[in-house]
Design a protein around this nucleic acid. Structure first.
Lengths: 251, 251
DNA sequence: CGGGCCCTTGAATTCTCTCAAACAATGTGG
DNA sequence: CCACATTGTTTGAGAGAATTCAAGGGCCCG
């Protein structure tokens, strides 16, 4: 299932996890850290473009993103694709599949992506022995739900321009929280096709919409990605309040 | 906050919960039942049209729907409304607010609605003392996420006709699972405005789209609701596989 | 140099929205 | 019982938004 350039061995011990000290994430208790470290069975690194999980499959694993970007998506029978959300460092991936068996969406790497691998079998131990971590898992699922709510509002009721403004603002805020900036630039290797498939628009119209945002000096589109020139202007254009600045749990 | 015709006293003991024996829901262990019964602090009954929870509020409660219908929605500053999902018997309501404080969406009753009330404070006990129930809470959150994924695909990538077919099919399947049919008819007091706000369409276009579905003999729209004439035809029209027939947990 | 991928642009077509009006069903007060 | 208001549905027409089709340009890489 995984392509050539894939490794699957333990590399970064949780004790040295580079994400642990980011202000976005909560602190671990030493005992929790020990458990998570035990829970982790390895790492998976894949190249950009790799499908990490696919709709219809029954994965035995649960992942946390250690580095890189990816996205979750679903497709219709004739190939129409909807990107549901983006994944970035600290995000839990594959929980739906672990809880309910079959994956109902796919996950693809947008950049080189490294994932911490957990056995879904051991998820029960989390609930039995680590109620605080179990609570965190629920928190994370609930947070994802919130974000999907906002996406749904966006696609259903925002205009094309508002939608694009919302998406770019959302991505740049998430990127900032995950420390994924390269200077002013959100370093997502995102094509306009990805943007289109997230916004529910055609690629042609997406292009024209991004151009309008650029004309208003809110963003600058450059080869596979964009600079956010005016973060507050984007939020205003989208009528969006932004992400809450809370320290979120991660596993 | 709650309007006149509202009662807030303990009425149905969990031991006699009418939902417990529906084939849709899993069985409780006696000890779980005892805990849930203790966890429940009362009931809330409201009339159709009542706002049960509102965006921006900090509710101290968590609810399970005992009877009736409702919906979750979000609004933009200028009044545009997006219905996110519908709630019906057995559904957990207000989890996001309980976990994260502020509600980011509102909940409104579509029919007379009765909710079992739980104190959010006691949610911690679930995690500390009832890992199986805690697991169920996560399962439920994850299931909601799945449904939102499908809604997102629908609004983003399905045509107006497909979207309407999906929604009506989805609602009738959920209604069937919750035993909410009145003969062949889905007894949701749903207006075309609700349909429009769910599909992300204008009410005029929604009306024309529903008419097309009716011309194809898939549905018949009648005063505040519709008959599903051809359930499989609807699913085919939407390119949708339907809900899984699993016994789901409820609390 | 050619091929592939991504971005850009114009034009015609299709979809969807707004505006406007009318109708049916229901409920209320006189 | 009727007049009237309210709510929900239906329809037509014109305006606006978004799609498809088509083609060209830039860039990187083998």
């Amino acid at each position: 299932m995984y392509p050539p350039r894939t490794r699957n061995s333990r590399q970064t011990p949780c004790e040295q996890c580079p994400l642990r000290h980011l202000p976005t994430f909560r602190e671990f208790q030493p005992e929790e850290l020990a458990f998570v470290s035990h829970f982790k069975t390895g790492e998976l690194s894949v190249d950009a473009g790799t499908t990490v999980l696919s709709e219809g499959s029954h994965s035995a694993h649960l992942f946390t993103v250690l580095s890189g970007w990816g996205f979750r998506y679903k497709m219709l029978g004739d190939g129409r694709r909807q990107i549901l959300n983006y994944i970035m460092p600290g995000d839990l991936v594959g929980l739906q599949g672990s809880l309910m068996g079959e994956m109902k969406h796919s996950v693809e790497a947008l950049s080189a992506l490294t994932l911490c691998v957990f056995e879904r079998e051991r998820l029960g131990q989390v609930y039995r022995n680590h109620p605080d971590l179990a609570f965190d898992v629920t928190w994370i699922a609930s947070q994802e739900e919130r974000i999907l709510d906002e996406h749904l509002l966006s696609i259903g009721r925002r205009t094309a321009l508002e939608r694009a403004a919302y998406l770019l603002s959302f991505l740049s805020q998430r990127a900032a929280a995950s420390n994924l900036f390269r200077g002013e630039r959100v370093s997502i290797p995102l094509t306009q096709q990805h943007v289109a498939d997230t916004l529910g628009l055609s690629i042609v119209h997406t292009n024209k919409t991004l151009k309008k945002l650029a004309e208003r000096n809110l963003i600058r589109w450059a080869d596979r990605g964009c600079d956010v020139l005016d973060p507050e202007g984007l939020m205003r254009a989208a009528d969006w309040d932004g992400l809450e600045a809370v320290r979120r749990p991660f596993i």
